[in-house]
Design a binder for these strands. Structure first.
Length: 835
DNA sequence: CCAATTGTCCTTTTT
DNA sequence: GGACAATTGG
């Protein structure tokens, strides 16, 4: 390890005299926790160094090198399960313990707030109060803090609202209406996506407008909407998710003194999950390190220390602008950078790893080396082919039961992953039925529930009356007898007077075109908002304001008086929000309403995630794990995306069907398919001991049951690591014929179709059942198609017939699909219906 | 003029 | 099987 340390570190460019002393800044007082900032002294220094060196215990040579690296940017290419979080944590602790960095000089960026909280906890457990002033957060949270502090520079209220995707789309809908767009063609969703991409590339609307070709209608419209959207955001004193990054970059670039302040402040920047950063985030990091700014270096500011950690194989966020180039070109971007590879996997059994490597090995131009491990083979990876999603869920439930009985595995050790959130329903149904405790992470998140968003809209309005999206959201919630008419009148008035919607409401007396009833209703609403604003301005806490708003508006009463049983749980959710707000007031006494709202906007409720045990050294995490060990806990259900960075002893990855995973929408491009492949890799590598892969032959997606072929990813699993419990569903033989009468999986009135454990299942299991052997499909069932007919295909969706050939059993059609282009399809087998 | 009701699209993945 | 928009009845 010393070899690695001395050879890779200390590149020529680094001025040794400027490196901080290795000696710790303080005397260790028995244990690490006792350290306080102070002056170094002789023997104490040696002792402290010994303490610091203990941070290297249990690390392999590469990991040590990564912890010890000094001088110049460092790229750690860390394969799945190679202990990257551990290395990053130790590296920060080491910087602090040796006095190379003060905690106030550290900015560590993680992917989620949960990861940030855990990392902070672990570092604190290692070096105690020395870690106090460091920033550990996501890009977004860090940017909000900077923007709030520097709001004046940007002409922004420091209580600006933060718009999530839903809010942005609402505002875009308003903009689209205003511009009288064809919202069928330009949906808010698509517009949001386009604008988000532009922002990720740091292209502001002025630049974009000047670049677009007027003859391209999509670009021209996007430019107009983008401009209006930004104007509306500014009027609302709101920033969307992408603005948080882009505006921070703008700030740093436009105000050199501000930039310099933060560069001096954050001498050590560490970025986790670097493969998932987008261009804007890349530039932000570059601005903060000042490495690219030669001119500033001439001004006496040395470049900051930058450490990034990532794994190109786990890049799964390209859809949101992440670019692998940030990791593959790191050495070009930072010429004196060093790279350290961590390829040893400590997490998974060899069988699991071989399966994972198989899935990802096909990717073109893949640079990484396959992971290696000294771990034992472990049990084989279990495959299962279910008849349908309920059968799949039943298999999982039965298997969890069996594992509990035979190996004492607890629910908390088990995770079930799926590609899309919608897939969780079938799983939940079965888990409820068999009585297995479970928790769904993500999905319809707490903060996305309607009542929560309504309540938060009141709070936002209180903090920022100009927040038009929020003020309009609860304009008639609870019902105040205000409809489109009243809304339009107020909107017109606001536009005519150049004031915000919220401000306009106060002048309801002057508003033309309203009935007396509407005037009264708006007046009451305006009064309520004014009162809430005053409370917020007087420093009332979020819980107090929430209480008042819910009571005074009649929102709570409306829910309580309702007979809809759903509304009862809404009341409970509001109580939960109130509890969160109260807890916030207690834990952060000087936290403002804006602070609370920031947390609500940026913190996905990842608190539900089980604490990750794994690394042994972190006292706090260890204690928590030990305390929880007695509990059986809950099975964790989540999407594959959410699973990134986690690990579980037992993992089920479901839905291995072409169309589900890889998702149908990714068929269009090679890049997207590769991203799906990496997603599979991420899923498989979450497992420590046991891995299960399943698919359903028939899956019911919104209404209609669909036959789906096996996922192409399954073909790349090395057969020797697989144990197929069931290779065909009992509907398998039916497949080619099944089209005439698709399996009925809808069950009216909640009556559940029993899963197939009958003789059919037994007969098919494992034996080479002949594919459609018995009766060739009767000719009458083959749809007769002519050019121009519209059809739907179970896998490819809507299509138009562009050519036909052959007759009867051999009839073939060329069909133009929306996503897929033209396909040649043998009608005898294809799941096609004529429309 | 508003509110409940019927139709329509739909679904990736998320900070 | 759900969110949300246009539609119709009150």
């Amino acid at each position: 390890m010393n070899d690695l340390f001395t050879s890779s570190a200390l590149p020529a460019l680094i001025d040794l005299t400027r490196l901080p002393s290795l000696a710790p800044a303080s005397v260790p007082d028995g244990d690490l926790d006792g350290w306080a900032e102070g002056a170094p002294s002789g023997t104490a220094a040696a002792q402290a160094q010994a303490q610091a060196d203990r941070l290297l215990d249990g690390l392999n040579a590469e990991q040590k090198a990564a912890v010890l690296h000094r001088g110049g940017p460092l790229l750690i290419v860390a394969g799945a399960g190679s202990g990257k979080t551990r290395v990053l944590t130790r590296r920060i602790a080491y910087l602090l313990a040796t006095g190379q960095a003060r905690s106030s000089e550290i900015l560590a960026i993680t992917f989620t707030n949960k990861a940030a909280a855990e990392m902070r906890e672990r570092v604190e457990a290692l070096v105690g109060p020395r870690a106090k002033a460091m920033w550990v957060s996501t890009f977004h949270s860090a940017c909000v803090r900077i923007l709030r502090r520097e709001a004046a520079h940007l002409n922004l209220k420091s209580t600006f609202s933060i718009y999530d995707t839903q809010d942005s789309q609402r505002l875009l809908q308003l903009c689209a209406n205003e511009l009288a767009l064809d919202t069928k063609r330009f949906t808010p969703k698509k517009l949001a996506h386009r604008i988000s991409n532009l922002k990720n590339e740091l292209i502001d609307y002025e630049t974009y407008s000047s670049q677009v070709s007027e003859t391209n209608p999509v670009e021209a419209v996007t430019a107009r909407v983008y401009a209006l959207y930004q104007q509306r955001l500014a009027q609302a004193h709101a920033l969307d998710f992408d603005d948080l990054i882009m505006q921070t970059v703008n700030l740093l670039q436009a105000f050199p003194d501000v930039a310099e302040h933060y560069r001096r402040r954050f001498r050590h920047i560490l970025v986790d999950e670097y493969q998932d950063t987008n261009h804007a985030q890349y530039v932000l990091v570059r601005e903060l390190t000042g490495v690219a700014a030669d001119a500033r270096r001439a001004g006496g500011l040395e470049p900051g220390e930058l450490t990034v950690v990532g794994d190109a194989d786990q890049s799964i966020y390209a859809f949101r602008g992440a670019t692998i180039r940030n990791i593959t070109e790191f050495e070009t971007d930072y010429p004196n950078a060093a790279t350290i590879f961590l390829n040893q996997n400590y997490r998974s059994t060899f069988n699991i790893l071989r399966a994972a490597n198989g899935v990802v090995s096909l990717i073109k131009g893949r640079k990484g080396k396959p992971l290696r491990t000294d771990n034992e083979d472990g049990p084989k990876v279990v495959g299962y082919v279910a008849d349908n999603e309920h059968d799949e869920a039943q298999f999982i439930a039965d298997e969890i039961d069996r594992l509990a009985k035979e190996y004492g595995i607890r629910p908390r050790d088990v995770a079930v992953f799926y590609r899309t959130n919608a897939q969780s329903r079938a799983l939940e149904e079965v888990l409820v039925r068999v009585g297995l405790p479970y928790v769904v992470v993500g999905g319809t998140r707490f903060y996305e529930r309607r009542e929560i968003r309504d309540a938060v809209a009141y709070l936002r309005a209180a903090a920022n009356l100009d927040d038009t999206v929020s003020v309009q959201r609860v304009f008639n919630v609870p019902k105040r007898g205000l409809g489109d008419r009243a809304l339009a009148a107020a909107q017109a008035y606001a536009a005519g007077h150049g004031i915000s919607f919220g401000a306009a409401l106060a002048q309801v007396e002057d508003m033309p075109g309203l009935t007396a009833r509407a005037v009264r209703a708006i007046g009451q609403y305006a009064h309520l908002l004014a009162t809430l604003s005053e409370m917020a301005a007087d420093g009332a806490g979020p819980a107090q304001i929430l209480d008042f708003a819910m009571a005074e508006s009649g929102y709570l009463a409306e829910l309580q008086d309702s007979t809809d049983p759903q509304d009862a749980s809404r009341v409970e959710n509001l109580a939960e929000l109130h509890a969160v707000a109260s807890e916030f007031e207690q834990s952060t006494p000087d936290g403002t309403l804006a602070d609370f709202l920031e947390r609500v906007s940026l913190v996905a409720d990842s608190d539900q995630l089980p604490p990750q045990a794994g690394t042994a050294e972190e006292a706090a995490a260890e204690a928590a794990a030990a305390a929880a060990a007695a509990e059986a806990g809950q099975v964790t259900l989540m999407t594959l995306h959410t699973a990134k960075g986690l690990e579980f002893p037992v993992v089920f990855v479901t839905g291995f069907e072409d169309g589900t995973f890889p998702h149908q929408r990714s068929f269009a491009s090679e890049q997207e398919l590769e991203e799906e492949r990496r997603l599979a890799y991420v899923g498989l590598t979450r497992a420590r001991q046991r891995l299960y892969l399943s698919r359903a032959e028939v899956r019911t997606t919104w209404g209609a049951p669909q036959y789906l072929p096996p996922s192409r990813f399954l073909e790349n699993l090395p057969p020797e690591v697989m144990e197929w419990r069931r290779e065909k569903g009992s509907s398998g033989a039916l497949r080619p014929e099944s089209w005439a009468g698709p399996v009925r999986t809808s069950y009216p009135g909640g009556g559940r179709r029993s899963t197939y454990h009958g003789p059919a299942a037994g007969r098919e299991g494992g034996s080479g059942a002949q594919f459609g052997s018995a009766t060739p499909r009767p000719a009458k069932d083959i749809p007769h198609l002519e050019v121009g007919d519209m059809i739907t295909h179970d896998v490819y969706g809507l299509g138009t017939v562009v050519a036909t050939e052959g007759e009867g059993l051999n009839a073939v059609a060329r069909i133009q699909f929306r996503e897929e282009g033209v396909k040649r399809i043998l009608l005898r087998f294809a799941p096609v219906t004529k429309l």
